[in-house]
């Protein structure tokens, strides 16, 4: 399913975080939002997720206007920089959370939920870790759990906010590869936020470069490198 961001603006008390941003992401695409801190990239991702709401502008999923829908109604999976795992729940219960809270009518049977958890653990290469608690896992493992949890309800989009930001270089590379494989396997439209242009170029189909609340350029990595749209892009990717 496609995502259309139309003329979205957002101010935080004094400074503008987004100043009339438009963006169209096609179905199945893997997009990176790249920019320095304060460029508005995380705000844009949160507005797409429904965790923040724009002052003006429209968000469409396919043809539907979802601008005023809360996050819970948007059918998204969200991965946070610091994982945001529920510390009092086991890995399995974390992953199953989105299913466990469904109303009785819509909720799959117990066994079905457990099967789904096992399937997701396998997908993120953490088989056998279901009974552990988040505090007993490494950072990379935690982020895999967070990814599995975000995927449990078969979201329409996967949104990741600096998903590798808190990890060291080696784990980062491993996880980056795993994410690309998973994306290709399930073909889910995905957006991730990063300030690291190498990471963006290595992973994404297309990269949107943000600066001061505006999109400077939105194109495939090769095109950005060949034909930077502005002096800012040139210096940022250098």
């Amino acid at each position: 399913m496609s995502i259309r961001v139309e003329e979205v603006s957002k101010r935080f008390s004094t400074y503008p975080a987004l100043a009339g941003v438009s963006l169209e992401i096609v179905d199945g695409e893997f997009v990176a939002l790249l920019g320095p801190s304060g460029s508005g990239k995380t705000t844009l991702l949160r507005i797409i997720a429904g965790l923040d709401f724009p002052d003006s502008g429209v968000i469409r999923f396919g043809d539907r206007d979802v601008t005023d829908d809360p996050a819970a109604k948007r059918g998204i999976g969200f991965v946070f920089q610091h994982y945001a795992l529920f510390g009092h729940m086991s890995v399995a219960r974390n992953i199953a959370f989105g299913l466990d809270i469904l109303p009785r009518r819509a909720r799959p049977a117990r066994a079905e939920i457990e099967a789904r958890v096992d399937e997701l653990l396998k997908l993120v290469q953490l088989e056998g870790y279901g009974e552990r608690y988040p505090a007993q896992l490494s950072g990379g493992q935690r982020q895999r759990v967070a990814l599995a949890r975000a995927l449990a309800r078969n979201p329409r989009f996967l949104l990741l906010d600096e998903p590798f930001g808190a990890l060291d270089t080696k784990v980062r590379r491993e996880l980056r590869d795993a994410l690309r494989i998973i994306h290709d396997e399930i073909g889910l439209t995905s957006i991730f936020v990063t300030h690291d242009h190498e990471e963006a170029f290595a992973l994404a189909d297309r990269v949107a470069i943000l600066n001061a609340g505006r999109i400077e350029q939105f194109a495939a990595p090769a095109e950005i490198l060949e034909r930077p749209a502005s002096p800012f892009v040139t210096s940022f990717v250098a």
Binding site: A49, G50, L51, P70, A71, A72, K73, I76, G77, F78, F80, H82, A84, L85, F86, F97, G98, I101, L102, A146, R149, A150, A152, R153
Partner: peptide, 12 residues
């Protein structure tokens, strides 16, 4: 962020 995670997972 824990609350936002729960909301993004569909919790009321």
């Amino acid at each position: 962020s824990d609350e936002e995670a729960a909301l993004s997972l569909g919790a009321s």
